[in-house]
Nucleic acid binder design. Structure first.
Lengths: 356, 356
DNA sequence: GAGCCTATCCGAAACGTTTCGGACGCGTCG
DNA sequence: CGACGCGTCCGAAACGTTTCGGATAGGCTC
């Protein structure tokens, strides 16, 4: 069977207490004794039972990460990259991750949160893809349970978060397109209950008005952040009699779908139409042409959130740490000069451009 | 503070035992009593403390998944998709995942396995990317600890696994290329200690000899399975005086790197040179042209492995379940007819092909 | 030699469950 | 009427740690 501490103690001829304290590194045990205990522990292959340790210490060294599941689950590149960051940081500080996925807003999601929090499953929780009004935040904040968020709710008091400054980001992106000569710019927004989707829409509208550019209703479509939905929106835009010359998608996944749709129709992305996204997920750099996007350092954010959470667990006074990052624009082949009016429409499908 | 079972018991005027048995669904408690206990539990928001439960039940309802970490960690599409499958299945049967990543073969990896197994962290372990001689398998098998594997070692006795039939797969792929008229086919192999890399090489060699096609040494390169390494191999191949007309990569990631390299040199993939991979990761369908590959249902394998592991935990006699899947070929734009000899080399960069 | 201090050790309680082995009361049967 | 069975209930031990509050022994000071 598995070796228990008492086995080590008996073998080393000391009491249970002394064995525990010897291995725990306390200074009230003689050096010779400590060495003897350590040796036998080693020899017997002793590893403390973690459930007992946790029960007694009232600390699990586990962090909870409950993903909003769609079909793809953890497979979505955005989550995968985030996970990579959190996981890496966690493992360097001897913490572990508890992963689950549930449909956003479902009762299953709520129940998992209850279990995880009240059942002492984890010491803290990391929230991701925050909603404008987010029951998870209310629940955790109400219970006084330590958590951090990637993104924010409408009322940001009492919990630490990191978020990107979407408004600033879209300003940068619109500037870029305007400089390239675009004025007919469409925007594919995300679901209104997701905070960043709201902010990105606001950012787009603000930027457009500051350039005194109109945004006709037909240039403002809605998607659900998934790839297919981006393709549909693109299709709808291109079917219009006066299609836009540039399309900004609320996130990269939709933008990739949009590119696919355009390419499928024989349109040359970056020349006939410009496309841009938001997030900077890895695959965006590997398509042809590459996707122009606003990069947020997803992995790095994961790492930082993990660190903040741990500090927050040990010291719950540091609750109001809010970090807002300005995303960096990544200009790649998918955006280019606006086509001159007489040359518009799809003619030849020969491309001379190549991504730099 | 958190409500404990004893709080519920006192509130409901029963003993601790009865409260426990009422909530546990035993039939030796009167219906009225049971209802009373359930109600108060509900009202007090009682959730059992999981560490205590685990300690007592000697069961954690947790499965361990220790990934071979490189820089990208969980971010690698192959792992991400696999994770999605395992995670989904686990959550439908109320199991949870313990995730960590360690460099393959490192002492950190070994120590984590020891802790996880001897410290009772999880009930079973899922292994992935098996090595030809795999210390993890020896350790787990030696300890009699339940585990399943995606892939296999040289000696497959005493543990359940699912693996793809790489030899058959490469047969299919080589047939496909031969039918397209290719005879100068190169292969970029993976590290020799990884089992599937061995099998895929064997499969390639067998298929080539059965078609009586030679495989000169210069057409046999090595990579480390990562994207960049695929690009390097491709570059080396294309610099040869008599470059191959088709290149098979040991996995999709390297194939994607190879495609990038080719495209970057102005070569039209699928016309000037054919490229194929192995795995069928999602992104392979989104490049232009799409990557021809051998698809293994990664997510589905994740789900199945999870199920097998759970059965194996409850009943350790079912240890020798070996599943071998024949991968399915996904023909996309990256493979096409072999260029005719006189037309060879790179001339125009205009492409008329498009992925169907 | 009494008093005190330090270094080293240990007994027992606690963490919050589950579960074994009964106990109790009441009706039924021979 | 005693034995037995059945439906309910409960006390106490156990799971494997950590830690509080001493206990013991030896050395030092006065």
């Amino acid at each position: 069977m598995k070796t228990r501490l008492i086995d080590v103690a008996e073998e080393a001829q000391v009491s249970l207490t002394t064995a525990s304290r010897a291995l725990g590194g306390f200074d009230d045990v003689a050096t010779a004794t400590r060495r003897r205990v350590e040796d036998t522990a080693q020899r017997l292959g002793y590893v403390p039972n973690i459930s007992a340790q946790r029960l007694r210490r009232r600390r699990t060294d586990m962090l909870g990460l409950i993903l909003p599941a769609d079909e793809t689950g953890f497979g979505e590149p955005f989550f995968a990259e985030f996970l990579a960051g959190v996981g890496e940081e966690a493992s360097t500080v001897e913490q572990h991750l508890l992963l689950t996925a549930h449909p956003p807003g479902s009762t299953a999601e709520r129940e998992t949160y209850l279990k995880v929090v009240r059942g002492g499953w984890v010491d803290g929780v990391i929230l991701i893809r925050l909603r404008w009004e987010d029951a998870r935040v209310d629940l955790l904040r109400g219970a006084g349970f330590p958590f951090v968020a990637f993104g924010r709710t409408n009322d940001v008091d009492g919990y630490p978060f990191i978020d990107e400054d979407s408004v600033a980001g879209l300003g940068i992106l619109v500037d870029h397109l305007v400089q390239l000569g675009h004025s007919k710019i469409a925007f594919v927004r995300g679901p209104d209950d997701i905070t960043f989707a709201r902010h990105r829409l606001t950012g787009f509208e603000t930027a457009m008005t500051s350039h005194r550019l109109p945004v006709p209703d037909r240039y403002l479509l809605s998607g659900d952040l998934r790839r297919e939905s981006g393709a549909e929106a693109m299709s709808e835009l291109m079917d219009q009699t006066h299609p836009p010359t540039a399309v900004i998608f609320c996130n990269d996944m939709m933008a990739l779908g949009g590119m696919e749709e355009a390419v499928g129709r024989g349109v040359v992305v970056g020349r006939d139409v410009s496309i841009a996204g938001f997030d900077g997920i890895g695959v965006g750099g590997t398509t042809a042409p590459g996707l122009t996007t606003l990069r947020q350092p997803i992995q790095e954010i994961g790492r930082r959130l993990c660190r903040i959470l741990l500090e927050h667990i040990d010291d719950d006074t540091r609750a109001n740490r809010h970090v807002l990052l300005v995303p960096e624009i990544l200009v790649r082949g998918s955006t280019g000069p606006a086509p001159t009016p007489r040359r518009c429409g799809v003619t030849r499908s020969v491309s001379e451009r190549r991504e730099g």
